[in-house]
């Protein structure tokens, strides 16, 4: 399941990160790699970007980049 379509407030495990250039690298360096646990908390008022909790911290990510990430329910 793509992260974009993931339900809110559910613990998810990252199954695949499709690496795409410098931005994909930064995603992975921030801890978005296979096996990481995250949850989508909410979307911004205008529907994008997403607010996610990754491990011990929170970050925001646009839908377009969230499409690089596949997750499965934990």
């Amino acid at each position: 399941m793509g992260l974009v379509h993931a339900p809110r407030e559910k613990a998810l495990r990252v199954t695949c990160v499709r690496n795409s250039g410098a931005f994909g690298r930064r995603l992975m360096e921030m801890g978005l790699i296979e096996g990481a646990v995250l949850a989508v908390l909410r979307r911004a008022p205008l529907g994008d970007p997403l607010h996610i909790r990754l491990g011990d911290y929170e970050l925001s990510l646009r839908s377009r980049e969230a499409e690089l990430i596949d997750v499965s329910p934990l």
Partner: peptide, 10 residues
């Protein structure tokens, strides 16, 4: 357009 990866601190 580049991405938008921003930490949201507590």
């Amino acid at each position: 357009t580049s991405g938008f990866l921003l930490e949201l601190p507590s």
